[in-house]
Design a binder for these strands. Structure first.
Lengths: 225, 225
DNA sequence: GTTTTTTCTTACCCACGGGTAAGATATCAG
DNA sequence: CTGATATCTTACCCGTGGGTAAGAAAAAAC
């Protein structure tokens, strides 16, 4: 069990001094909050817990956030921001549909190992107000649409075997999203390893559709940007 | 399998009379509780909510369960029970590793559309006591091990292309588990349709590993038992 | 009918946690 | 140095929800 100063530290330092630096302090709150939300869930994390880790008291938090939910929503925003970045990058990155899907899986899997990224898929949307909920759902829907379009593109250009894009997208999204459930930052598997393995496995597929002459090469795919 | 009668209710009928029938009343509590847990999450579901749906009052629930957590744990137990059943069936069902994996995906996906099954993967383990948590984790670990063994079996018998069984199992498990997140009992896609599509997609794989002469046949795989 | 047992209700306790009020103290601009 | 402002604390409010006490009312046992 992670102790106070061991694995997740450095953020209480932001509040060591009373110097006026709202930006970094706000950031510190979000980082520790995200950490705790992932560890104990939003509902079981009290603002006292957050404050305690930062060596301050609960009301101090209200200088940086209007309420608890705003902290949660900000975590979602930072996470979806990361995802949106990579989506734009990939869309611009010319290539076959299959290549785009592979690039997506690789980058997305990596995001799922970052705190804010994990928050997006791991935290319970039900804790959000209806407005914030709608906002987050818009982001998510966008992601799903993009992935599906990559697949359709791949079917069109022949790089992907004909299939139902909706189901394929659900499969891939599920496989990658689930990473944020079992991934442990302190675990054995490094993030990039997971990402590249997933990119390979999911694009290559599991079944041997046609009997190969020899053993299929277990080539290491170069990690995409 | 267990078909939920109407959309949601019908369970309050169990408490319409004061006749002594603890078994069905207990069942009714579990069904409505599971329903609410999936709808609003465990944390946001109060025992008053559960009681209200059953047209009784909160303390009445304590005649059938020691506390709130016992209700939750029982949902987990019923769900894992369903999964264990299908696992045993498949292990006995002779066939190649790939066939076992396909059968697993099909049956498992179906379970993920049933309330108690969904509870197993959708609900937050953090709400369980450490004892119950350990029990549930044991079940889940077992499932993962079984799936992985099916894959290894398939690689050994040549029905599955060489790959890392751990990553493959994580991918498949993630894709199928994620169903319980987005599946809506009232939605368009029927459960069996999802299950068979997933079984096909995930075993067939997405990428075309070798250029086929013609269009790949989109054969309908017969729904496994 | 009478007694016993189960079932369920009304009324209550209390710990927890989000949020606020009001004031103390440090930082900064001048 | 001085006043203004941002920062943070102590003390408090109160709604919510899990859980209990004690007893009423219905069902079964006799």
């Amino acid at each position: 069990m992670p102790k106070d100063g061991a694995a997740a530290p450095s953020h209480w330092k932001a509040f060591a001094s009373r110097r006026r630096d709202p930006a970094t302090k706000r950031e510190a709150v979000l980082q520790t909050a995200a950490h705790l939300f992932l560890e104990k869930s939003y509902g079981r994390t009290s603002l006292n817990d957050v404050a305690e880790r930062l060596n301050i008291t609960k009301p101090a938090l209200y200088h940086y956030f209007r309420n608890k939910e705003e902290i949660l929503l900000e975590c979602y925003r930072l996470g979806t921001g990361l995802i949106e970045e990579i989506l734009n990058e990939i869309a611009a990155h010319c290539g076959t549909g299959l290549e785009k899907v592979a690039a997506f899986i690789y980058s997305y899997a990596n995001v799922m190992t970052v705190n804010f990224g994990r928050c997006v898929m791991r935290l319970d949307e039900g804790d959000l107000s209806s407005q914030a909920f709608a906002e987050v759902r818009t982001y998510k829907r966008k992601i799903d649409r993009r992935l599906r379009s990559f697949i359709e593109e791949g079917i069109a250009d022949g790089s992907i075997a004909p299939c139902d894009p909706k189901i394929a997208a659900f499969s891939i999204a599920g496989a990658v999203n689930w990473i944020c459930i079992w991934y442990e930052p302190e675990g054995e598997l490094p993030a990039e390893e997971i990402a590249s393995q997933f990119a390979r496995t999911l694009t290559q597929g599991l079944a041997r559709t046609t009997p190969n002459s020899g053993e299929r090469e277990v080539s290491r795919q170069e990690p995409l940007p």
